[in-house]
Design a protein around this nucleic acid. Sequence first.
DNA 1: ATGAAAGCGCTAACAG
DNA 2: CTGTTAGCGCTTTCAT
Lengths: 348, 348
Amino acid sequence: MSKASVYDVAREAGVSISTVSRSFTSPEKVSAKTRAKVMKAAEAMNFTVTHTAASLKTGRTFRAALLVGNERLDWFGSLVREGLDSILHPAGYDTSIYPIGDSEEQEHFFAELPIRRNVDLVFVSSFDITSKETSRLSSINVPIIGINVESNHDLDGSVKIDDAKGIQLAVNHLLTLGHRNIAYMHISPKSSLHFSSLNRLQGFLEACRQWPEPVKTELIKLQPGQDVFSSFISQLQSMESRPTALCCQDDSVAIPLLFKLNRFRLTVPGNLSLVGFDDSTYADKIGLTTIRQDPFDLGAKAGSLALEFLKKTPPKNPYITLDTQIMIRNTTAPIEDTRPLDKWACNS
Amino acid sequence: MSKASVYDVAREAGVSISTVSRSFTSPEKVSAKTRAKVMKAAEAMNFTVTHTAASLKTGRTFRAALLVGNERLDWFGSLVREGLDSILHPAGYDTSIYPIGDSEEQEHFFAELPIRRNVDLVFVSSFDITSKETSRLSSINVPIIGINVESNHDLDGSVKIDDAKGIQLAVNHLLTLGHRNIAYMHISPKSSLHFSSLNRLQGFLEACRQWPEPVKTELIKLQPGQDVFSSFISQLQSMESRPTALCCQDDSVAIPLLFKLNRFRLTVPGNLSLVGFDDSTYADKIGLTTIRQDPFDLGAKAGSLALEFLKKTPPKNPYITLDTQIMIRNTTAPIEDTRPLDKWACNS
DNA sequence: ATGAAAGCGCTAACAG
DNA sequence: CTGTTAGCGCTTTCAT
């Protein structure tokens, strides 16, 4: 039976209910002997503290909400979640996901704010939340931590990476290898106007511009759902000069492309140096040079940050930017090793 | 302020707290006019029902626990979670993950059963739980649903796929294409003795055996972390005859292998037909023939099942097996199109 | 249809 | 160190 309450345990152990309660919540306030008695009785009766009842008294729910966009939780989202949980769960917090998807759903959520008084902590992960919404969110009076969101406005804390700096790592690697004609492939921003895509694109352009020698850049747009390889080959035709290197917005475009290139005998890095972004699934096994970010760590850092707020010792700097790192593997090579791209692009 | 309670709303609306409560929990028991008043006041004061307080009275926590192994939540796990949430969240349930990892953690969890009286629903997803544990779990007296677990013992319901049947689909496809020498590549079971790997392996063997003509089979073992391609090539050397087709335990071994094969100019399906399992990330974009399962659906079905139990209308058949499907793409071809494997395998 | 009142199971003063 | 007591915010009979 799962019906034992503090009263039952108290009776069984021959103590008062407060002693039972204390044995669980602040063991140091109970003599070892008494506690032992209590614990024994509790065990025998399969007693467990009911969180919901405790919440009522303490005002803490030990719940956290993770707000995400309604896209399928991808590589990034799942890892963020895990990182968060890795910190929060041991601290006694349960995290649930609140998908804030289409704008109707979103409107409803922010109007009702169903999490008000039901969570102690709110995390907002990389979705396009307006500042009006954040400010409304802040009315629930619990710490709000952003994970990979653009602005820190009305956020108690945030953890993010510097996308522009990341792509700069990629560009500089290519420039150092001697490449002077570099393309950037990205998903058409009209459909997914996530700021981090924008930052990567701008970071790419900026990094090329800053190089002392002239660097030629080409932009390749991808419609969502469109075949990466076909788009690449098609848009190559209309370029006046062919790039020797290609930066991709993220691994999820680089990997299928790399795959098709291999399949159609276009060698990488022989014909083209290729860089991804994320260091996500398969990047390592496949040998893709890419920019590494660690979503698990983003989540974990966000969790720790949040816990600090709860301790009433507000962290000195609650706005964290994590470093990215370039993982140099087998898809980039010096320009000397690269045959001119136009040798093959036209008749493929 | 987030402090409005039923009392505040009652005062504001000029009604009793019971009326406020009823307006939210059973609106039909309140006259439309009164309800309107209540709702207006509630809105004005940003009132939201506090779940924890409600739980205390109703005995329902509106929480669910998803027990998983401690491996990183992968493609499968994340999708199961999402599917579960897609049903449970709209029904008012919050799901949190309880990683039951190393055996110490596991022991502690099952000894303490910290979720007792704290969740209304328990899901157990694909990890190796012993029947003793399941039975202990069932002592908490809430519906327990298995997702992709082997035995239904002590489980109120379960949702799974038939792994053996799935791999059979793959084998029969290859046999129909004329292949009579088929290899199976799997991760060494000593490290991950998940039953579904075992079922796939056995299903493979069984399917080959059942074919009216003699079929030669080869088993290729993979140590976790070991390079797939190197293992493949190495073990090929010691085979007396070379397979023309290869079934992989799952896409996560097929994809890197396919990639390396392409890179090293070993054509698929020209030299070898290749089949994966899962239809996971990139399988589609890359054109991998594979067996499709839908973890999202597994989760969703599990969620619906659980909800039925809560309605006190136990579903007639709570043990569901979902179908798998073969996705025929570009990595399999008739035997006539396949050059003998030994033409290239030895000098690569 | 509405209100009064009694807890749900726990924690946290406050006493002793 | 331990016990008594008063709620936390809600739901739910039971009256009216």
